Simulated scan of single mutants.
Amino acid sequence: MNVADDGTPPMLGWDAITATADRIADEVRADSVPDVLVGVLRGGVIPAVLLAHALAVRTVRTVEVLHTTADGVDAVKSAAPQVANPASLGDLTGADVLIVDDVAGSGDTLARTVELVRDAGAARTRTATFVCNVGNWRRPQAPGQALTYIGTVVDGWVIFPWERA
């Protein structure tokens, strides 16, 4: 995916998104279908629902973990991910949980969400991201070590079909 001549980041289409969902679902299924999917609000909710349907998982929860301070290309990040209403996860005691987000930039949002899900009692926690932006990555482990399932790796911003360009 390349930046357009006018500097606009590439936009992923629905065909690419559904193909990514199918590919990630196959990988998850090969490892075992989770009991619960957790979508990271806002962007991770649509991918979580797509995966829930592909995996026939009916329990989908959400949690708001924000690391950017605004929408838009290369938005400024807060010092640490901010959590709103962690109780929205409910009781996950003993559950196999798949956390889903649309994009992993620094990796901090998913790392924080893993902590929240474990605090809620999950027995097993995995992560899935449709896009990993390695240009912003700053976790000590490489993306392939820190994240369980990655749809595609890019070096830069992308626009999803549910976002405004």
Rank of each mutant, 00 (worst) to 15 (best):
S106V: 05
V76F: 13
E115L: 06
P34R: 01
A104R: 04
P34D: 07
Q82N: 11
A56S: 14
A111K: 08
V73Q: 11
V103Q: 09
D96G: 00
G144E: 12
V73W: 09
A146T: 08
V83F: 05
V76G: 14
Q141R: 14
A70V: 07
V134P: 04
L98W: 00
V63Q: 07
A25V: 05
V100D: 00
T148N: 12
F130W: 09
G72D: 05
N133F: 08
G121D: 14
L116C: 11
P81V: 03
V63T: 02
R118K: 15
V38T: 01
A122S: 10
A25S: 06
L110F: 02
V117C: 02
V100K: 01
A25H: 04
N85W: 06
V83T: 07
Q82T: 13
V36L: 07
G43Q: 14
G151V: 04
V36K: 10
V97H: 00
P143V: 07
R42F: 03
L51S: 02
G39H: 03
P143Q: 05
I99V: 00
H67E: 08
D71A: 15
A80E: 15
A54G: 01
I150D: 08
L50A: 13
V65R: 03
G72C: 12
L89A: 05
V114T: 10
V40I: 10
S88Q: 13
A142Q: 13
G135K: 12
L116W: 07
A30M: 03
D102A: 09
A95D: 12
D102L: 04
H53E: 11
T127E: 00
A25L: 04
D22S: 15
P140L: 01
V134I: 14
D101K: 03
D74Q: 12
L89R: 05
T20L: 10
A52G: 13
T20I: 03
A123T: 13
V103L: 13
D35H: 10
V60G: 02
G121C: 11
A128C: 01
A54R: 10
L51K: 02
D96S: 09
A70L: 07
